[in-house]
């Protein structure tokens, strides 16, 4: 039985697509057949982050409308075995995603994949609701910043009231918190909410902490999921998160400030 994982946040620009790309790629690297589905209808971007933007022919909405079949729309990743992308449509029609249509496509995907990673759009409109509705697990992506944490809390409320599992009285969605753009240095100087602060407010099991990292922009510039940059801090932090998702125990790295020499302590930098 396939697991459906939604990557969601409420607020935009916190790293949902970066996370979807990294986690999806990590699951495939671990030998799980994985598809990443872009739910951001009208503002497709997963294809760019995954580096397959020039290979998009058909999309999610085409499959829902029976204008193409899944095989035509799925894009096979060229780097990682068993990794596929289902791109979003660029249509401006907000009602393109119907609950029945999404359910049909997810059911078809569930027959072929172990993991279905749903990259949610920002906001709490229909696209975001459709992305989380059928989920078994949710990765709530949050920056250590007030508006992002507040929006995460609203999304957590929706996971437990507006999802299929909530409506049908099934086991609730398994929630994971992923903190991105974390800077231990700024936490130590009292300018940034700490992991513990965010956990006190949201009370969701921590899946990972991704440090603020130059590697993330470099990765999106080149269309390579950052998890493939195995030397980078962000890449390693995402790998840890994937391992935890698969039930492994991993210590949290990159949440303490790096130790510096005496001179740089005094003069900064």
């Amino acid at each position: 039985m396939a697991r459906i994982i939604v990557v969601t946040s409420g607020k935009g620009g916190v790293g949902k697509t970066t996370t979807s790309a990294a986690i999806g790629t990590g699951l495939a690297l671990a030998g799980k057949k994985t598809v990443i589905v872009d739910f951001d209808i009208g503002l497709r971007n997963l294809d760019l982050i995954m580096g397959c933007e020039r290979r998009v022919v058909y999309d999610f909405v085409n499959v829902i409308n029976d204008e193409a079949n899944l095989n035509q729309a799925l894009i096979k990743d060229k780097r990682v075995e068993d990794l596929y992308i289902l791109p979003a449509s660029q249509t401006r029609d907000k009602d393109a995603l119907t609950k029945e249509g999404v359910e049909k496509v997810l059911n078809d995907l569930a027959e072929r994949f172990d993991y279905i990673v749903c990259d949610s759009p920002a906001g709490i409109e229909k696209g975001a609701m459709m992305a989380l509705y059928f989920a078994d697990e949710a990765i709530i992506t949050s920056n250590p910043e007030v508006s992002s944490v507040r929006d995460s809390d609203r999304i957590i409320g929706m996971l437990s009231s507006k999802s299929r599992r909530a409506e049908q009285g099934l086991e609730p969605i398994v929630e994971h918190l992923l903190i991105t753009r974390y800077s231990p240095k700024r936490v130590n100087s009292g300018d940034m909410l700490s992991v513990d602060d965010i956990n006190d407010i949201l009370a969701v099991k921590l899946l990972g902490v991704i440090p603020e990292s130059q590697a993330v922009l470099k990765a999106s510039n080149s269309g390579e999921p950052v998890i493939l940059d195995k030397e980078s801090d962000a890449g390693m932090a995402y790998q840890d998160a994937v391992d935890r998702l698969l039930g492994e125990n991993r210590d949290f790295r990159f949440i303490q400030e790096e130790k510096k020499g005496l001179l740089s302590r005094i003069f900064g930098g």
């Binding site: 007030v146 507040r150 936490v187 009292g190 909410l193 700490s194 602060d197």
Partner: peptide, 8 residues
């Protein structure tokens, strides 16, 4: 950060 936490 402490202020942010209290407001949140």
């Amino acid at each position: 950060a402490q202020l942010a936490k209290e407001r949140l």
